[in-house]
Design a binder for these strands. Structure first.
Length: 109
DNA sequence: TACATGACTCTTT
DNA sequence: CAAAGAGCCATGT
């Protein structure tokens, strides 16, 4: 029925948010990592959820960044700097525009 | 059904 | 190291 697809969606969203909530302060995770752990094929879907779902504001989504260590522009943090500042306050160090994922990455590849 | 759009990622210049 | 192009897939029109 019509609800089936939506319920799956809800479950995946829930999973994504639980994962984001599990990222410790001072650490970061990539869209790809979250997508993989949540069972999503495409990391874009994670970005899509964070952009559309109002519940995203209740979670530390500033700890989710690109796979190359840069942060996304045009986020709900207002501007790109907002996210960087928040991460800096948690102790995340930037080298140029990137964070060193081998040090601050929540999950090591 | 078809086409455009992204809080993306990878490879190649 | 930055920029460009291809691949990706849920969503919206």
């Amino acid at each position: 029925m019509l609800y089936y697809k939506l319920m799956i969606d809800q479950k995946v969203r829930q999973r994504v948010f639980e994962l984001i909530k599990a990222i410790p302060p001072g650490k970061v995770a990539t869209y790809k990592q979250i997508a993989t752990l949540a069972g999503l094929k495409n990391p874009r879907q994670v970005g899509h959820i964070l952009r559309t779902d109002p519940a995203a504001t209740n979670y530390p989504c500033h700890r989710v960044i690109h796979a190359d260590g840069t942060v996304a522009d045009g986020t709900a943090f207002g501007e790109r700097f907002g996210q960087i500042v928040r991460l800096r306050q948690e102790g995340v160090v930037f080298r140029g525009r990137k964070v060193k994922l081998d040090i601050f990455g929540w999950i090591q590849p």
